[in-house]
Design a protein around this nucleic acid. Structure first.
Lengths: 316, 316
DNA sequence: GAGATTATATACCTTCGAGTTATGAAGATA
DNA sequence: TATCTTCATAACTCGAAGGTATATAATCTC
């Protein structure tokens, strides 16, 4: 004797609200509808659910027992509705975000921390990759958002890109480095120092090559490679090595006094740091919320950078 | 965002059975039906429940969470189905049984005990009344079964009656009574003794009147009245009082050596002990089972009485 | 106890979801 | 790449649940 769960809900509603009319109202249905459903159910199971000819409808023992189960169904249903509501409101779910390592570690991870403070039920699945890989992953739906530097001209046509920051890189070193703090610098002055090499797929690596090509160095001394931002910071602060990092990373670390940027302009192709996504695949509410959040955070960051640079100029 | 409980069940079934096809089978539905329901649900809530283009269907996080609720719904449903099944099988429910006091106490209560050993989930609501009242209660659906003496000619036409035992009453006394054990007795010999009077509505009372009228006694000494069987037994065994009781009650108490029946035939109208019920109101499975049980018990009792009487005759 | 009031049941119709079979499409597997 | 499995779609039927309007029956009230 299979019972329809909705019937259990109806029974519970009637019993708990003290009458057919009230039960119907609680369920958002009309009284006749509920009445007929009950009648049908009684006919099917061949048993009364409510005492005959009693005006404040009086549940039978069987009905009471079924109402207990009905309450469980109603409760589960409410929980499920809440789950779905949170999901469609973008307050729960998963966001798969990938990006270039140093930028993720130096800038985005802090923002993710803020995001998760606001939306603790959204899980972030972070991964590292460079632009080409990220594009592939977006296209194959292995990723929801990519955050990386991108030449707008080189954007794959299936993807969309929204710029967040200027994508320029700088030469970074320890604040205690002999070159640090100099108001101006000639390129040739950097020649003696060893380098921490970014990964070869990284735009940072390309920028490093172009810098060194600019001063005629085809060969350069690599003292360290393969590390993530945390390793590089440790090594930079304890050595005279130089490296190339996104300006925003250096900026974010300004409070820790861990890095300095050398006043040398690096020429590189037009390039923005931004988020990239696949417009074809209808993104989840959580993803939409994440993207909006990142936009807002970078909006703040841009004004902070602007103010900071104005102050710096002023003081000079 | 209201969710249909059946959808939760479907989700749970798919997740727990590792696939849409298996889930459909577990639910006893066709695969396309389940597939379409899932598609419809996904469209309604605007979220994927299963990863796109994955062949062993892979539930999303939201889906997993909903499956948890779905399992609760399924469990409640199973419980409810079992409840209903037990009910329609007549293994749970209520039986409202009424009857004449001495017969209920002396005979039926023992059978009810047996019945409840076999069907512990059936609740018995017992009450006491006499034939006229019992008929009324049956007609007004305040009672499921009445067990009482009845002249088949006097049966209300709306009710049905099934005879269980000969309804004769006997004069009962203590086994230590001066008259007990005498092989034969003249009516006049009982004149000196006091009487325990049954309730005036009782057929027992009528029989008592007719006995005394037969020996010309219009006045008789009532030493006790108003008690139930238990009181009467206590008083009988400690006095020389006489009373009128159904033969079956005396028979059932034979083992306790608490009663003796005097060998005096009481004339009374044709009358059977039996059960009475209202055929118009479709009785519950539990009631049907109870009636059948009582029938069977009395069938046994009749043969026991018959054997006992043959033995008694033999021994004389 | 008659009428008023309220609650439940019925009638009648509409609509929508869920069921079916048959078939197509797309991963997974070898 | 061919084949197998699994899921999705198509096209249709059917029944249950929805609604409004209204009848009927219990209970309340005086």
């Amino acid at each position: 004797m299979k019972i329809d769960s909705r019937h259990l809900e109806i029974i519970a509603a009637i019993v708990d609200n003290g009458g057919l009319t009230e039960g119907a109202e609680a369920l958002g249905k009309s009284q006749p509808s509920v009445s007929r459903t009950v009648a049908m159910l009684e006919a099917r199971i061949g048993a009364r659910l409510f005492e005959k000819n009693r005006r404040p409808l009086q549940p039978t023992d069987l009905c009471q027992a079924l109402a207990v189960e009905g309450r469980k169904v109603l409760a589960a249903n409410q929980t499920a509705s809440a789950l779905v509501k949170r999901y469609v409101d973008g307050k729960s779910g998963v966001v798969r975000v990938g990006g270039t390592p140093f930028f993720m570690d130096g800038v985005i991870s802090g923002m993710i921390a803020e995001f998760q403070r606001a939306y603790p039920e959204i899980r972030i699945e972070q991964s590292y990759a460079y632009a080409a890989d990220l594009s592939r992953q977006l296209n194959s739906n292995a990723l929801d958002v990519a955050i990386c530097p991108m030449d707008p001209g080189a954007l794959p046509e299936t993807l969309e890109f929204s710029a967040l920051l200027d994508g320029r890189n700088v030469i970074a070193c320890s604040p205690t480095h002999p070159l640090a703090g100099k108001p101006s610098l000639r390129l040739s002055e950097i020649a003696p120092y060893p380098w921490i090499a970014p990964p070869v797929e990284s735009p940072l690596y390309q920028d490093l090559r172009s810098i060194l090509a600019g001063i005629g160095m085809t060969d350069f001394k690599v003292s360290f490679s393969g590390g993530t931002l945390a390793s590089i910071l440790n090594i930079l602060t304890r050595s005279d090595a130089l490296t190339v990092l996104p300006y925003s990373v250096v900026f974010m670390l300004r409070r820790q006094q861990a890095l300095a940027a050398l006043p040398i302009r690096i020429n590189h192709p037009e390039r923005s740091l931004g988020q990239m996504w696949n417009p074809l695949q209808n993104d989840r509410p959580s993803v939409r919320r994440f993207r909006r959040f990142i936009d807002a955070e970078f909006s703040n960051l841009r004004t902070t950078i602007m103010k900071h640079e104005q102050n710096t100029l002023w003081r000079r």
